[in-house]
Design a protein around this nucleic acid. Structure first.
Lengths: 202, 202
DNA sequence: GGCTTTCGCTACGAGACGTAGCGTAATGCC
DNA sequence: GGCATTACGCTACGTCTCGTAGCGAAAGCC
């Protein structure tokens, strides 16, 4: 969350329950109201805390929603289904399921949009959402290489570039399908997408 | 733009110059202020019109920005460079160049985010941005099929599905690369992306 | 000239923002 | 147990933007 200064050993400690209540209230408000009609006063009331308490912990709407949405993606797991294709399909489907939830839809793109003019916010998104899930790409690839489904990378730099490209393609396609085309990223779509992606990487 | 009722043959006509001035002022305000700090009062002042004039033509910030941003994508053209790979590279690079502009970055994602709770707005985006550019995918594919670079489609329904998938992959990857990863979608990246996409479609 | 619609201007209530001030509650240190 | 320190709830406030209403003037068509 925020940089809790390590030298704060004295005084009343911050309530951890309040943090959880605020983040949960934020997600609930995103579902009911969406980003633009969400107000911090309303979130505070839902969470049962004072508005001033909320402002002591988060600088504003942007930072609050990033933290509230980031928690949603922590449940992503890489299945071990035996083949690279079904591993990818499983992860992409999980990602699509999370993104289909209204609190993720309305919250995530709004903060990404705000991040175009706020480097600190973009870094917060990268650190708490993107970078934390890139592990799935890396682990999936190394598994596939161990199974001989993918060739080993010639050099580390090219390996990193490819991983970034894969991540942009997966996340970007699912987001575009879900939010812009407004069609469900269901099993059928995921199969088609995975087929193109995998064949392209061979 | 808005539904200019065909039965308005009498009375003072609306100033076409005002429309253009308002949309240009909207883009300028997006560059300087970004989405969240853009106010309709400020746009009206920049455009040299009264705030009430602006409200007579657009229902709100969302609709205004969609129209202002949609104009940016009209300059997309399909190059005829002889091979499918370089055709795709050319279009993707054009798209990335437009999306790199600050008015597109901060405006487009914001309205997409708002569209998750507003069906009419999403339809407006689809009609004035997405659907209008999907022609590039269709035309590029038919050219490639004529050249024998791509197999003909077995049935029309599958052809439409594939076109949608391609569009989601192209637009999604470029958007994610530009806005989330915040790295330039330059020639090198576009080449790598096109290689994966093309090989996947073969 | 008469009719109709748009335009610029001013003013307004409503709502959210972000902050300040105060008294109270919870902890660590002596 | 008492003290310093920090967090908390509450109230109140000035500021900003929103979206609308009302008015007189302007610009077209018959």
């Amino acid at each position: 969350m925020q940089s809790r200064s390590p030298a704060s050993r004295t005084g009343r400690p911050r309530s951890a329950a309040a943090d959880a209540a605020i983040l949960a209230a934020t997600r609930a408000a995103l579902v009911e109201l969406g980003w633009s009609k969400l107000t911090l006063g309303d979130v505070a009331t839902r969470a049962g805390v004072a508005k001033t308490t909320l402002y002591r912990r988060w600088a504003g709407k942007n930072e609050l929603v990033v933290d509230a949405v980031a928690e949603l993606f922590d449940e992503l797991e890489l299945p071990d289904s035996g083949s690279l294709a079904s591993d990818i399909e499983g992860v992409v489907l999980q990602f699509a399921t999370i993104l289909a939830r209204p609190e993720a839809k309305s919250g995530l793109m709004a903060v990404v949009s705000e991040a175009t003019r706020d480097d600190a916010l973009r870094e917060r998104i990268r650190a708490s959402v993107v970078e934390r899930q890139k592990r799935l790409v890396l682990e999936g690839r190394s598994r596939a290489q161990a199974r001989g489904e993918l060739p080993p990378e010639p050099d580390p730099e090219s390996a990193a570039r490819t991983a970034d490209l894969i991540f942009d393609m997966v996340a970007g396609a699912v987001v575009h399908r879900t939010l812009v085309s407004a069609e469900p990223a269901d099993e059928e779509w995921v199969r088609g997408f995975t087929r193109v992606l995998l064949q392209g990487l061979a």
